[in-house]
Design a protein around this nucleic acid. Structure first.
Lengths: 321, 321
DNA sequence: CCCTTTTTTTAAAGCGGTTTCAGAAAAGCT
DNA sequence: AGCTTTTCTGAAACCGCTTTAAAAAAAGGG
C-alpha cells in the first residue's frame, strides 16, 4: 500500500513535510514541494480519508435527512450540496420514508463520528430523541422549532402568501381563489394569511372553494377544467406552488382562456417551471435557506462560517397576473 | 473523549478484551464481558468509526451513482439499501444530474477509501475513465457492459417485452399498439421484440402509431384520449411501463371504455401502482437485481456473499388483459 | 562577526481502534 | 502428577495521517 511514509521515503523528506505539502502549509522549500508533488503524481497517491478523519476528528461529511425527495426538499438539497462542496464537505443523503429506524441510522452515524453534522428536513422520531443526539454534533432543521439545541432556518410562509395576495389586490383582483396543499405544515399559515387578507379588504371569500391536497401539475390541470365549467368564476387563483400554477396555466391556455385577461394566476416558489412559463410567483429563497443551514452548522463546528443571509420572500412579477 | 482505553481502564481489562467484547469474539470470560458491557452502557460509548475504518481498511459504505431519482432507479436503490443494511453496510447516494464532476466526486471517494465499492446505475463519464477506478475498489453497473473490470447485472428487456407480447397474442389480440419510452437504452430492444413478434405472426403493425417518449401517468392519459378519438383502434396496448399503463387505464375508465373488453392494457415493471390497479404486467425483478449487484460487490470485497439469483422476467396476469 | 529573527525540517507522539503473539490459567486425558 | 489441549488475557505493534516541539539552516540587523 502506498502511504505517506512511502512518499516521504521516495522524496527524501519526512512525512511531516509531505503532509505540509498536501495541506498547503507554509514553510516548505519550493524545491522539495515540487519533488514531493512529483512523487505523489507518479505513484497516483491520495491520502487515506479514514486516517485523515481520525486524526483531524472530523469526516467532512454532513448528513441530510429527508422523508422523501420532494418538490420542496429538492431545491434545498441541491443548494445545500453546492455550498457544502464549496467548503470541502460531502453530503450524505438519507431518504427515510419517514421511518424511525432509517432516521436513527443517520443519527447513529453522527454519534459514531461518521458524520460531522446533520440537517433534519423532515423527521420521524420525536424531537426529544433527536435533541438528545445534539451532544454528538450540531443538528439544524428547516421546520419551525424554537430551541437552543436545534437551530432552525424556518420561514413563516404567512408573509410570503400575504405578499402574493397583496399583489393580486393591488392589481385590482377581488375574487381570489386560494388553492391549499394541505400536505406539509405550511397550510395553516397560508389559511391564516388568506383569512386576514379577506378581513382586511372586506372581501367575501365564501363563494370560492378552497381545494385541498393540490400539489402537482396534474392537480393544476384539474383545477383548470373545473374553472372552465364554473359559473361564478374567480378572477384570480393563488396556487399552493408553481407546479400547480403551471398545470393550471397550460391547461387554461389549451382551452383558449386568456391569462391574465380572464383570470390571473399566481404561483409560489419561483422554480424553473415558473421562469419558463413566465408565471408571476413568490420567490422562496430555499437556496439561501440552505446556505444558512450550512453556515450555522459550520459555525457550530467551530469553523469560519459565511455570514447569514436574511431570508425574505420576494414577489416576482411576470406575465400571468 | 471517551475511547476504548477509557473503557478498558474502568473495566479493569485491556483494550484487546474490550475490542473482543465489541466485536463478539469468542474466548472472553462471561463475567468480564458483562462488566465491559456495563461500562460501555454507562459511558454511552460507541467506537469511533474512523478509527475502525482505518484499522479494518474498509468503511462499510458503498456508493450508488444515479443520474436522478427516477421510476426505474428508485426500486433498485430501495432494494439495494435494504440488502446492504442487512449486511451491515451503509449506502451513500450520489444524484449526479448526469454531471461528470458530480460523478467524479463519487469515484474519488472510492479512490480515497471513503467508499468500499460503487454501483453505477447511470454514468456521465466515459467508460474507460470509470474502468480506471476499478483498481481502487469494485464497481458494478446495471447497464449492458461486457467487461471483466465492471461486472453488470444487466437484463436484456427483449425477453421481457416478448413475454408480454406473446401473452397478448395468446389471449387473441391481434391489433397491438406498442408504446415506446425512447428515454433510456431499452427502447431498441423493445422495438426489436415488437418487430420480431410482428414478423413471427404475420401481423401488420403499420397502422398503429408507435408513440415515443412516453414515460409518465400523464402520458398514459394522453394516449387514452387519442385512443378514444381514433377510428382504426388497436385492441391492445403494450405500454412502456406501469405508470403509462395506469394513466391509460384510469383515463379510459373515466371515459367509460371497458378494459379489457374494448381494449387490453399491458404494463411493465410490476410496481405498486400495477398491483393497486390490477394491471397485467411483466415483472421486472429489480429487487433481485439489486441483491445480485450487492452480492457481486461483496464477493469482490472478499467477503462471504449470498448466492446470485437468476434474473427472470415473469408475466403477472391480472384483469387488464 | 555575533546575536536575533525567520524559515525549514524532522523525530516522535498521538488520533482510537484491531490483531498478533506469547504467555497464563483452566480443563481434559493418561 | 504430568502432559496436552483449550480458553482467556494483555502488551505491543500497527493502520495512515497530523501536529507539536525542538533543532538546524538561512536571513536580517547592528
Amino acid at each position: 500500500m502506498t502511504n505517506i511514509r512511502e512518499i516521504a521515503r521516495l522524496a527524501g523528506v519526512s512525512t511531516a513535510t509531505v503532509s505540509r505539502v498536501i495541506n498547503d502549509h507554509p514553510y516548505v522549500n519550493e524545491e522539495k514541494r515540487q519533488k514531493v508533488l512529483e512523487i505523489i503524481r507518479r505513484l497516483d497517491y491520495v491520502p487515506n480519508s479514514s486516517a485523515t478523519s481520525l486524526k483531524k476528528g472530523m469526516t467532512r461529511i454532513v448528513g441530510v435527512v429527508s422523508g422523501a425527495y420532494t418538490t420542496s426538499s429538492t431545491p434545498f438539497i441541491q443548494a445545500f450540496n453546492i455550498i457544502a462542496q464549496q467548503h470541502g464537505f460531502h453530503v450524505m443523503l438519507f431518504l427515510t420514508d419517514n421511518d424511525c429506524g432509517k432516521e436513527l441510522v443517520a443519527l447513529e452515524m453522527l454519534r459514531s463520528k461518521q458524520l460531522d453534522a446533520l440537517v433534519c428536513l423532515h423527521r420521524a422520531n420525536e424531537w426529544p430523541i433527536i435533541e438528545s443526539y445534539t451532544k454528538y454534533g450540531p443538528i439544524v432543521t428547516w421546520q419551525r422549532l424554537v430551541n437552543d439545541l436545534i437551530p432552525s432556518v424556518f420561514m413563516d410562509q404567512y408573509q410570503g402568501y400575504m405578499l402574493g395576495l397583496e399583489h393580486l389586490h393591488a392589481r385590482g383582483y377581488r375574487r381570489i381563489m386560494n388553492v391549499y396543499s394541505s400536505k406539509g405544515l405550511n397550510t395553516p399559515q397560508r389559511m391564516r394569511a388568506y383569512d386576514d387578507f379577506s378581513k382586511k379588504y372586506w372581501l367575501d371569500d365564501s363563494g370560492f372553494a378552497d381545494l385541498h391536497g393540490k400539489v402537482s401539475i396534474t392537480d393544476g390541470e384539474r383545477i383548470a377544467r373545473s374553472w372552465v365549467e364554473q359559473t361564478d368564476k374567480p378572477d384570480a387563483i393563488a396556487c399552493s406552488n408553481d407546479d400547480v400554477a403551471a398545470g393550471l396555466l397550460t391547461e387554461l391556455k389549451r382551452a383558449g382562456v386568456s391569462v391574465p385577461g380572464e383570470v390571473a394566476i399566481l404561483g409560489f416558489d419561483n422554480n424553473n417551471l415558473a421562469r419558463l412559463l413566465d408565471l408571476t410567483t413568490v420567490h422562496y429563497p430555499s437556496d439561501k435557506q440552505a446556505e444558512n443551514a450550512f453556515a450555522i452548522l459550520l459555525d457550530r463546528l467551530g469553523q469560519e462560517a459565511p455570514a447569514l443571509h436574511t431570508l425574505e420572500f420576494e414577489l416576482i412579477e411576470r406575465s400571468s397576473t
